[in-house]
Design a protein around this nucleic acid. Structure first.
Length: 860
RNA sequence: GCCUGGGUGGCGGAAUAGGUAGACGCAAGGGACUUAAAAUCCCUCGGAGCUUAGCUCUGUACGAGUUCGAUUCUCGUCCCAGGCACCA
């Protein structure tokens, strides 16, 4: 019988579905295990990134199931978002139709991969039954002040025709349109108050041992907590003060001027009626015209303009000039800084450019610096000078006492500041969840009453050809009545950032059909938190940070009992492949290359670097083609075997071929000697074995141990598979070795073969189900318990001991493993080769590592 | 610039608590089977050298150090990838 993957995969997929083997229910008697992979955007076809991500997850899910755990392994669709709108315009379909068609197609593909999802729990976030609850949570957040609207400078992407959150701006560009710079636009936007939770989210970073350090570091950096002080500088000729935030109150005595962000409302206020007014206004206008990327780029020089006004340095009482400066950020701290040119490089450059005074207040321990001659700011530690009464103290040690001094004098106080800003969720998009708010001329901003939810997205609209949202142009949507005064009112036409949907979908999987609220508490509390979350590193900040925030909000609103959603996180690496370019036709798809030549013009193809698979580089492999050619098992196996999950995976067609060959080898191993195998049952340990049977039996148990450890502790499926390959090789060798084989021999072979099948089953579930049946078992492998190794079977009577002289291997001996260190030392010294090497040199000492090595240290 | 990772054969990668560097696989070369091909099986496979059943030297980006012993630990340098980046 030949290995025909497609036939047998269809058979087993149908079987699993018919038997409902992946459907789970809450069972308080059993230990739960929630395994989650990041749900996909339904783009229409799965790609290799999905295949890798979901294969890793599926192995763990199947493994945990075999350990007897009650495993929740759901799948759904991150179904709102821009591409649906773009596709709708291009193909003149509706985003909803496009999305649901794609979901159907991708679901089909995922099923072909043999993933063990409980499809009864499927979620699509564009379903009103889903976003209804999101709208409800939004209203609850609005009640508590966690959702609020403000006029703000926001990131605007021209291509998206929409606002972006700070997290969605990458190198000054939109995260989806990396070729287009984001500009700043002042508009009304809704925000979620993630900053209220900044401290807690930061603290808990140290309580997530199951997360990669790199991700936690990124989140910590993103939150950017810093300790400092707010200091009030009285404005000369007014009773007003200008507040600044600084982490360097130790340099306050050296503050010789002040800079305000151009957007700072005080700038326009203080220049009113002064000769500088026109110039300042011009400066503000010019600066704001620049988009955020240009404004903050390396090559943009520090510029500013004198406002004509002064404030008083509150500790020196000196009059210091106030500038408006382009490098001061409006939305960090207070939007104003005290400038200390002697100890801050930016301030130094600015001061030199505009001829502003310098005063050194920190003196280096080993030399003196002079305001006249210094060429850069001194930013190291030192001793405070010109800072009565703090002179002579070490600057860092004085930070606290200076802050206390400011507090006691009433001119400032200690404070903590964050880099993290509130999450802007307004999107001027159509294909998203409507924000449930109504604007009434009389009653102002009025939340939609809970009974009126969901605010459904109308499906009977035509999209506007320029890509803008049709909602603000659609009276049937935005015209409504005020819930309070019943007068004419207008709906909010912005929709929510799609990251809101993905911030709680994992909760909803616990109770996807629940109709009485967002979450069924009992079920959610049984399943949550997610025990193992698996997904791409690209979501290290965006999705994972939002989800940690949203979970806390849901907890505070009483919807669930936990504060952290994901116990363990595995971030899998990218799938890469080399690029191929034709001199005339540019990047080529793999199928366009034949024997190193371009199939269009026969020119020699240049093989480029290996980079992440992407359509733009055309270095993609369609999983569907591979499934058709080799079957899902081979694809799954290669994804796992080629590299450990957290590293990037380099695609190799020959590697795939190798995986396919291996599965064929396993297939033949069993089918070629099926008659012999069927005569016996698996070796039960009752009969004492002698070599070579004993060593095959030992190898089987060593393999069980290794595979179990590799999956359990490290998710290192590549080494787990290697171990099984070794077992298969050894079994094959044993079968092919001469000598008659009795029933005992066959029972030991059968033990090895059964172990092979079971250990491989999470990786290649179809072929192993088939082989299990071929071996004569009636029940599905899914119901088989994960094997245990027997400690006594691992025992080896003999050990190879390496003998080194001065750390270099000089001989190897096989000794009984019962020998103690002294006995090994004696044998090592008696070894003929060793005697030769040592000659007449004196042995200084001998180091023996039990059962492994002896190192003889000699002197000459 | 700062913060994370990471640099091991022709290639993907092993070496889990400092103990034989290169498991397993791919590619390559040689051989067997075959009329032939495919498939399969067997052998070789880091580099250099030698008096070649084997042996010696060398080798995990580079340079030092700790140690009986370092791919693994420490310090310095270089390179690559990712994140942050005028955050006061």
């Amino acid at each position: 019988m030949k290995y025909e993957p497609q036939k047998l995969e269809t058979k087993w997929q149908a079987f699993w579905q018919r038997e409902g083997l992946f459907e789970v229910a809450e069972d308080p008697q059993r230990e739960k295990y929630y395994l989650l992979e990041m749900f996909p955007y339904p783009s229409g076809r799965i790609h290799m990134g999905h295949v890798r991500n979901y294969t890793i997850g599926d192995v763990v899910a199947r493994y945990k199931r075999m350990l007897g755990k009650n495993v929740l392994h759901p799948m759904g669709w991150d179904a709102f978002g821009m591409p649906a709108e773009n596709a709708a315009i291009e193909n003149s379909t509706h985003p909803a139709k496009w999305t649901y068609d794609n979901i159907e197609a991708m679901k089909e593909q995922l099923k072909k991969m043999g993933f063990s999802y409980d499809w009864d729990r499927e979620i699509a976030t564009c379903d009103p039954d889903y976003y209804k609850w999101e709208q409800l949570v939004f209203l609850k957040m609005y009640d508590k002040g966690l959702a609020y609207k403000k006029r703000a400078f926001v990131n605007w992407c021209e291509k998206c025709q929409s606002v972006l959150a700070n997290e969605q701006v990458v190198n000054g560009c939109c995260w989806r349109h990396t070729d287009l710079e984001v500009s700043m636009k002042e508009m009304d936007s809704w925000f979620l108050k993630i900053t209220d939770y900044a401290d807690e989210i930061l603290d808990y970073c140290d309580r997530l041992p199951g997360w990669p350090d790199s991700v936690l570091k990124m989140q910590k950096n993103w939150i950017g907590k810093s300790y400092g002080a707010i200091i009030r500088f009285p404005l000369v000729g007014s009773d007003k003060v200008v507040e600044v935030f600084t982490t360097r109150q130790d340099t306050l005595f050296g503050a010789t001027f002040m800079c305000l962000a151009p957007e700072h409302p005080m700038v326009k206020e203080i220049v009113k009626g002064l000769p500088q007014e026109k110039e300042v206004h011009q400066f503000i206008e010019n600066t704001l015209k620049m988009d955020s990327f240009m404004r903050t780029a390396d090559f943009t020089s520090k510029e500013g303009v004198f406002t004509g006004r002064y404030c008083l340095n509150p500790v020196t009482n000196e009059k210091i000039p106030i500038y408006a400066a382009n490098f001061v950020l409006f939305d960090y701290g207070t939007g104003a800084i005290m400038a200390v040119p002697t100890h801050d490089q930016r301030d130094f450059e600015f001061a030199k450019k505009y001829g502003l005074p310098l005063r050194v207040v920190i003196s280096p321990p080993d030399h003196e610096i002079d305001e006249e001659t210094m060429t850069e700011a001194y930013i190291e530690e030192g001793i405070l000078i010109n800072s009565h009464p703090f002179n002579g103290q070490r600057n860092l040690e004085a930070l606290d006492s200076i802050a206390e001094y400011l507090e006691s004098e009433g001119i400032g106080q200690k404070t903590v500041n964050y880099r993290l800003r509130d999450w802007g969720i307004s999107r001027q998009r159509y294909w998203g969840a409507p924000i449930p708010i109504i604007y009434c001329d009389r009653c102002g901003t009025v939340p939609v009453p809970e009974n009126d939810l969901p605010v459904e997205l109308p499906l009977d609209l035509d999209l506007r050809p320029n890509g803008a949202s049709p909602l603000p142009f659609e009276p049937s949507f935005f015209e409504t009545v005020c819930p309070e005064c019943k007068g004419k009112a207008r709906r909010e036409t912005d929709t929510m950032d799609t990251f809101v949907e993905s911030s709680w979908y994992f909760d909803r999987y616990a109770c996807p059909e629940y109709a009485l609220g967002p979450l069924d508490k009992d079920r959610v509390n049984y399943w949550m938190p997610v025990d193992q979350y698996i997904g791409g590193i690209e979501h290290a900040i965006l999705h994972l940070l939002y989800s940690r925030f949203y979970t806390r909000v849901m907890n505070d609103l009483g919807y669930l009992n936990i504060r952290e959603p994901f116990l363990n996180l595995l971030t899998q690496g990218m799938v890469c492949k080399e690029t191929q370019q034709c001199p005339t036709h540019g990047y080529l798809y793999p199928y366009q290359v034949r024997e190193g030549r371009c199939s269009l013009c026969q020119a020699e193809v240049i093989t480029g670097s290996t980079v992440k698979m992407s359509k733009s580089k055309r270095n993609v492999v369609d999983p569907q083609d591979l499934i058709d050619q080799y079957g899902a098992d081979t694809v799954r196996m290669f994804c796992l075997f080629a590299s450990p999950p957290e590293k990037s995976l380099e695609w190799s067609d020959q590697g795939v071929e190798g995986s396919f060959r291996f599965l064929n080898r396993v297939w033949r191993l069993i089918l070629d000697c099926l008659d012999d195998l069927k005569k016996v049952s698996s070796y039960d340990g009752k009969i004492e074995l002698a070599d070579p049977l004993k060593s095959l039996h030992r190898k089987t148990h060593q393999t069980i141990k290794k595979v179990t450890n590799d999956i359990e502790d490290r998710f290192h499926f590549n080494t787990a598979i290697s171990a099984v390959m070794e077992l298969v090789n050894e079994t094959n060798q044993f079968i092919n070795s001469n000598g008659k084989k009795d029933d005992t021999a066959w029972s030991v072979i059968r033990e090895a073969v059964e172990a092979t099948v079971i250990l491989l089953s999470p990786v290649v579930p179809h072929i192993t189900e088939e082989l299990w049946q071929v071996l004569g078992y009636k029940d599905s492998l899914l119901k088989v318990e994960w094997p245990h190794y027997r400690e006594e079977s691992l025992h080896e009577e003999e050990r190879l001991v390496v003998i080194q002289v001065n750390g270099k291997v000089r001989s190897k001996i096989v000794v009984p493993s019962s020998l103690n260190e002294k006995e090994i030392e004696i044998l090592a010294l008696e070894d003929e080769r060793i005697k030769q090497v040592i000659g007449d040199k004196a042995v200084a000492k001998v180091i023996v590592v039990q059962k492994k090595l002896a190192n003889i240290v000699v002197k000459n």
